[in-house]
Amino acid sequence: MQAAISRVLSNYATFSGRAPRAEFWWWWLAVLILLTITSIIDGLIFGTGPESGQPISMLVSLGLIIPNIAVAARRMHDVGKSGWWLLLAFIPIIGALVLLYFYVQPSQEGDNAYGAPNPLT
């Protein structure tokens, strides 16, 4: 898990290359845990309810937008698709399901148009 997170953070805004399944999913688990923790902290500091807002969670989310998109684009490259396929996210429900299908696919073996496989070590 630590190797996946450090690899994503070291490639903060790198949209080229490939990201194996493990790197992608460990990263999303770490993001989910981090956002859950910041949401709890927001609730303790600012209270709950629609008027309280969640400033810490919002700042963390803003800081993670670029690496989230970058790792998703590299994951698409790993299955042989262009990062532009991420635009499917703007199609309600169907787009998310298609992207989920691509995310769970195994990596293409050997080199592809986006480079050599990048095993998670």
Rank of each mutant, 00 (worst) to 15 (best):
L62V: 11
G115P: 12
L32Q: 03
P67R: 11
P67M: 09
I41G: 03
I91M: 09
S16G: 08
S6I: 06
G53F: 08
S39C: 03
L86M: 14
A89P: 00
Y101I: 15
P119Q: 04
A70P: 03
W26K: 01
E109I: 15
S10E: 14
N118S: 13
V8I: 10
G80S: 09
I41K: 03
V98S: 07
N68W: 07
Q54A: 15
Q105E: 11
E51W: 01
S10L: 02
A96I: 12
L87E: 10
R21N: 05
I93P: 06
L100S: 05
S39P: 00
W26E: 08
F24M: 02
L88P: 07
I56V: 15
M1F: 07
E109Y: 00
L35K: 07
Q54E: 05
S10W: 02
A30R: 05
N112Q: 09
A89Q: 12
Y114L: 14
A70E: 11
Y101M: 09
L86C: 11
F15Q: 07
V60Y: 08
I40L: 13
F24A: 03
R74Y: 08
H77I: 11
F24D: 03
H77Y: 07
V79S: 01
L64C: 11
W27C: 08
I91T: 12
T36A: 09
Y12S: 13
L88S: 09
L64R: 08
G83S: 11
A19S: 12
R74C: 07
M58F: 15
E51T: 15
P67L: 14
A113F: 06
I69S: 05
W28F: 12
I56C: 03
W27P: 01
W28Y: 13
W26G: 03
W85E: 00
L9C: 04
S82D: 10
N112C: 10
Y103V: 01
G47H: 04
L32R: 02
I56D: 00
N11P: 01
I56G: 01
P117F: 07
R75C: 10
A70F: 07
L120W: 05
A13L: 08
G83M: 06
I93R: 00
Q108E: 14
W25A: 02
I93E: 08
E109H: 09
T14W: 00
D42S: 11
P92A: 08
N118E: 13
T38K: 05
A73F: 14
T38R: 06
S10R: 15
V79K: 05
Q2P: 00
F24R: 02
A3I: 13
R75H: 10
L32F: 15
L35C: 08
F102D: 04
